[in-house]
């Protein structure tokens, strides 16, 4: 009883909950290293592997945090990454320029994000609805792009063209730089503060004269840049692109954000690092399951159980139980 009052007085409960995902990640890393040592794994290669498997989701989820902070939800991120990568691949095959391919990936992703944001904010439609519609459109575009390309099943960028960028250092550099930019915008500028305010209490924010349309557009642009970077990194890792490229990214982003401790209802308790923590936690968890040769069915069930636990814990820490996005 006394402990409870002390915890409430100093806000300890809040603090513990806010850093719990980080402890979760540390616990997973410790478990992984212990199991890897016991099973005599190639730990250096495993760490590189974990970065390879996390970086795309970590980058895209970091950008998506801006949308989630507003209490919104974008289900079309994976399809957007696929379209961006395919168009980028086609541009490379037409021009032979990696720079143009990079710019195309980012440009296409930002354009898609802008369309989403314009539909949502200008026509006052719920973001979830516009992104569901966009998901259908983008899936159709993917098939069209592959057919236009003439091979019927894939668009392939020559491996040699991007092999130099498929390195640990390049991926780390992209992740660190983009995270630094997002951290600065999110935590050290007016834009980030206004977004948290708008996500936490849209009515109050509106009455305070905050331009929610402008903030929504900024959030989608940040997310678009992230998708563009993610699609470029996808090409460097696996330059043969199909309709299934980045197909799991959309769902992985949502799971990562929740794993990382981000309230999906957005608001003041949104954390920019949640995406990175969540993405790496998920990959470490996957790697532990791979190590013990557990098949994907069991893996999915374990993930589902952890997902439910995390969401339950997050809800128990919130006065407002409406944690679903708008």
């Amino acid at each position: 009883m006394e402990l409870k009052s002390v915890m409430n007085r100093y806000g300890l409960k809040q603090k513990i909950f806010s850093i719990a995902p980080l402890f979760g990640l540390i616990a997973l890393v410790v478990c992984f290293l212990a199991a890897a040592t016991a099973k005599d794994l190639n730990i250096a290669y495993s760490m590189k592997n974990i970065l390879n498997q996390s970086v795309v989701v970590a980058v895209i989820a970091t950008g998506a945090i801006f949308i989630y902070t507003l209490g919104s939800f974008d289900i079309s991120l994976g399809a957007s990454a696929c379209v961006s990568a395919l168009v980028g691949g086609m541009v490379y095959n037409a021009t032979g320029s990696v720079t143009l391919m990079f710019l195309t990936c980012v440009g296409v992703a930002v354009a898609i994000a802008l369309i989403n944001s314009v539909l949502a904010s200008v026509f006052n439609l719920p973001v979830f609805v516009t992104t569901v519609a966009m998901l259908s459109v983008l899936n159709a575009v993917v098939l069209m792009l592959i057919n236009i390309n003439g091979t019927g099943s894939q668009i392939a960028v020559p491996t040699d063209a991007v092999a130099g960028l498929n390195t640990t250092w390049f991926k780390l550099l992209v992740l660190v730089l983009f995270f630094a930019v997002c951290l600065f915008v999110f935590d050290f500028t007016k834009i980030g503060r206004l977004q948290k305010f708008l996500g936490g209490n849209p009515v109050c924010a509106k009455l305070s004269g905050i331009n929610n349309k402008r903030l929504a557009i900024i959030a989608f642009v940040m997310s678009g840049i992230a998708v563009g970077l993610g699609s470029f990194l996808s090409i460097t890792y696996a330059p043969t692109l199909t309709k299934n490229t980045a197909s799991s990214v959309g769902m992985d982003v949502i799971i990562s954000i929740v794993f990382g401790g981000m309230p999906v209802s957005g608001g003041a308790r949104s954390r920019i690092y949640a995406a990175v923590v969540g993405a790496f936690s998920m990959t470490f968890l996957n790697q532990i399951m791979v190590m013990f040769n557990l098949n994907s069915g069991i893996g999915q069930m374990v993930k589902a159980v952890i997902f439910l636990i995390v969401v339950s814990l997050a809800m128990s820490n919130q006065r407002n139980k409406e944690i679903l996005p708008r």
Binding site: K39, Q53, S234, P239, L241, T242, N244, M291, S296
Partner: peptide, 24 residues
Amino acid sequence: FMYSDELKDSAGEASAIDNFIANN
């Protein structure tokens, strides 16, 4: 024998091979 999950694209193949290599 260590089996990959069901693979849908070349990224999945690359990822699965990375897992195999990491697992010696």
